[in-house]
Nucleic acid binder design. Sequence first.
DNA 1: TTTTAATCGAGACGGTACGTCGAGTCTTGAC
DNA 2: GTCAAGACTCGACGTACCGTCTCGATTAAAA
Lengths: 203, 203, 203, 203
Amino acid sequence: MSQTRAHGGRPRSERARIAVLEAVDDLLVDVGYAAMTMKGIAERAGVGRQTVYRWWSTKAEILFEASVTDAASELAVEPQDSTLDDLASYLEAVSHFLSVSPAGAAYRALLGEAQHDPAVAKLLASTDLLGDSARPVIERAISRGDLPSQTPIDQAVAQLLGPIFFQTISGYHGRGITPHDLANAFLHAAGAPHHAAPSDRSA
Amino acid sequence: MSQTRAHGGRPRSERARIAVLEAVDDLLVDVGYAAMTMKGIAERAGVGRQTVYRWWSTKAEILFEASVTDAASELAVEPQDSTLDDLASYLEAVSHFLSVSPAGAAYRALLGEAQHDPAVAKLLASTDLLGDSARPVIERAISRGDLPSQTPIDQAVAQLLGPIFFQTISGYHGRGITPHDLANAFLHAAGAPHHAAPSDRSA
Amino acid sequence: MSQTRAHGGRPRSERARIAVLEAVDDLLVDVGYAAMTMKGIAERAGVGRQTVYRWWSTKAEILFEASVTDAASELAVEPQDSTLDDLASYLEAVSHFLSVSPAGAAYRALLGEAQHDPAVAKLLASTDLLGDSARPVIERAISRGDLPSQTPIDQAVAQLLGPIFFQTISGYHGRGITPHDLANAFLHAAGAPHHAAPSDRSA
Amino acid sequence: MSQTRAHGGRPRSERARIAVLEAVDDLLVDVGYAAMTMKGIAERAGVGRQTVYRWWSTKAEILFEASVTDAASELAVEPQDSTLDDLASYLEAVSHFLSVSPAGAAYRALLGEAQHDPAVAKLLASTDLLGDSARPVIERAISRGDLPSQTPIDQAVAQLLGPIFFQTISGYHGRGITPHDLANAFLHAAGAPHHAAPSDRSA
DNA sequence: TTTTAATCGAGACGGTACGTCGAGTCTTGAC
DNA sequence: GTCAAGACTCGACGTACCGTCTCGATTAAAA
């Protein structure tokens, strides 16, 4: 289960690993993603440049490792009494994550890079950060009987996360839309009988 | 003296302006956004480096000018007979724009930069590209009576665009969700009475 | 006769050129050849690194350009009244050049590099620094009648410079050999009838 | 306790020592002195990096140890029948050593380093490689009566070795000067009465 | 017509990060 | 305590692009 050490050689320095990850966190806040360089990370961490390159290829990779655990924990919310409150509190957490949290800033930076760097896109795809956090919330709603048991989970995830993701990531000017509004609307859409299309009414 | 120009001076070369914009379009396709440099743009355009800087500050600015008009036209779709078809065809256009079209690639690149560059964020915010394209579609649905007349437009835009935007921009693994599915679900959500409790679904 | 400037472009900065050559001179004295780096040269000169590489490939090339004129002038000595004094004063200058002068230190550094770098060897070969300085001295001796008119110049140069060069460059422990001694011995060897080999005596 | 070694410890590996010296010999031929690195030596020898540093400080030191014995044997020539032939054959050996032999390449590399590294200069000075080889040849000539018995040996060594050393080490363009020519000229110079005025040549 | 001045292409300028390489040191477990 | 292995910090390598700065050469309106 160890990371395969054939036989000899000095073992990897845990001290250096931690220092790099912390340097990346600090730099993201201090100078922002664009001004964050491999050189700067190494210097801030008090680590040789080669040591950084030995274990990570790009600053995106370091940032990913530095943020993913924080991110996941920030998106895991306590179940609430009612499904509506549960959804609203989850969406509140997502909103906070995407627009306020440092871990969310890291995620947005990586998401940005992913738009023009397939390697970063692949990296991000390796962990479905948002989807994995949304699924339990939806499953809870189903088990409570507030969503139909045959609800297509993937689509429900997109419907739940989509609006708030869209508002935060694109700079969309939707004024006064609260997580509670979106939770409410989501329950309507996903809760309704699924294969009876509304436009059928007009037929 | 006079207000705009004291007296002489060579006028701006339209030839150079066009050449730069075309070079940016070409380079985005050929080498991608990340590998696109001001130096490269000037060389590809056969234009002095200073000339580029004289009229645009950043490559984001050039890319924006080069792509917005294309983008807007790609997102304007023909009205369809039924509202469901109308919505589906619009979402199909959005999907195509975001994942296939070169203009969309430019938009995604800018969106990416905007995640860690406030100047680019501001630039993008100056034109609500997606919102402006969605509004007419929603208003058409309202005027046809398929959405309540008091529908909050801003929120409806986010609900309509959110899911497809989320799927494309985050690399969400939603399998087999079609624009038609999303259009259908949207009509359910937005078409339902707005402040009704979720338990109404059982009625 | 100019350095061919096709048409456009900012002209080469004479200021930068001089600054680099002076920086090399300074650094050779301050830190020595081995510790002299392209980076260090650029910084000392207050010049961009690229600017150094644009005009010179290696530090050897810069050092050569910086030293060759100084070197040549240091090796040009005033003619003396007698041929013996003339030779002795020349050899004194050579000795001073090779063991004391900064220009000579540069020459020795280049000579050292040339032993394992063909490019530097070629560079040095482009100017026969020592040979060119010795030839006039020998020709003066011939024209004064102190050397036979058919003296083979190339060989005479090697015989004149060889001993002092050997002593300085190899760390040879010859004690108490003066330039005057060597001048005297040289006059004997080269001045003697050339094709009557001494070993012929024993025949 | 005891004087030399307190108690335990693995003894130095002779295998490793030999492997390093052979690796240096190989590398000098394969990649040349400049491209020869401590890292490369250790890898070629199949030896830990620390092991190399434990026994030698610099690559110059290893090269020196690897080459001196070869060098000395290459410069020891068989006595010839006539003094002229003896000198010529010796000079031929010197020329071959300096310009062809691998051991000579090592010597030239060290000589090069010595021009800007006092440590290497000191190392080279510890063995007067060329001088020690020339002395017996000159003494033989004296004992044969072909050189005056009061000949100053040190100066004679410089006069004998100087020209050929100069030609090989500096890239001097002396065309068609053979070891035989130089041996001949040397006998003239050193064989003549030592303090006689140059005008004696006309006698 | 002649001036005047802002434009144009070209390309050198001082900076700085890139990713690689070698330096010499340190830290393992095995012998 | 030495060995092979290999990670460590450090710093130079040569390259690329940054945004700025000259150049000489256009180009058109103002004088």
